[in-house]
């Protein structure tokens, strides 16, 4: 079920990725607080119908690769939060919301 090696997935486990800093209208499953933030792919869940299209009753096909991306808390909040130095945050992000991060 967990397609670790999705043939057409653009990113692989270990890749550094940046969440697009985009703010389109509509039903979006990429949280606001992660947009523009840089993290690392720790899992490839497989491909799933696009929720942005499902939200309007469409089939959401073709399916989009879905990644588990981990972020350092410090990279997300930049000091403005109550977390430990090692604390982290992971979220599932669809491929069209990710871009390669500068290394």
């Amino acid at each position: 079920m967990r397609a670790a090696d999705l043939p057409d997935a653009r990113f692989r486990v270990g890749d550094r990725v940046r969440v697009r800093a985009a703010y389109p209208p509509g039903h979006i499953r990429t949280p606001f607080y992660l947009r523009g933030r840089t993290g690392r792919v720790i899992g490839v869940h497989g491909a799933f119908p696009n929720p942005e299209r499902l939200a309007w009753g469409e089939d959401g096909l073709p399916p989009i690769p879905l990644y588990e991306v981990v972020f350092a808390m410090a990279a997300v909040w930049q000091g403005d939060g109550a977390y430990g130095a090692r604390d982290s945050l992971a979220a599932d992000i669809y491929e069209h919301w990710l871009e390669e991060a500068a290394t």
Partner: peptide
Amino acid sequence: LWKTDENRR
């Protein structure tokens, strides 16, 4: 009749 994402939307 609808999908979860339609309910969310």
